[in-house]
Amino acid sequence: MESGGGDTVRAAQAGDPGAFGRLVERHWCEMVRLARSVVGDAEAEDCVQDALLSAWHALPSLADPERFRGWLARSVFRRALRASRWKRLRSWFGLVPERVVRHEREAEIDLARLMDSLPPRQRAVLHLTIVEEMSDREIGEVLSIDAGSVRAHRRRARQKLSSVYRKGDP
């Protein structure tokens, strides 16, 4: 996964906080979108903040600055996945309401419910395929799985969507 901005990454690796700030500005929205697709709105931005803080400290270990975007996305995904598991655990014990973010439009509520019915990895695969238009190989890098597993997740997501739509209850 190419990210461009290799010089900015190299400057950040050398310890320039200003360069790292530019990287944050460049990738913030995309990373928040990815985290939202996995954990939902309420915790997404915290996950990205944590991943970015961690990235700052681990940046010198990044061998290829051109792969910064995929490297960061992988960290964001892992944190969002962990947060999603905790969220599910808390909801089982009734510690958090089922949905804490209000959407204004009915269609958005339907889509949010539909996405919530899928497991986190399938949601991430749908998001990275449709919204970010990544290849299976790129998605595999972010999710730390191979391209075949990406296709399997997408196929299962389609089947689930199919069953939900047949019931007419998205």
């Binding site: 906080p17 200003g18 790292f20 700030g21 530019r22 944050v24 500005e25 460049r26 913030w28 929205c29 931005e45 990205v48 903040q49 970015l52 803080l53 700052w56």
Partner: peptide, 9 residues
Amino acid sequence: PAEAARRLR
């Protein structure tokens, strides 16, 4: 993004 970068810095 700009505010996120500022807070992180």
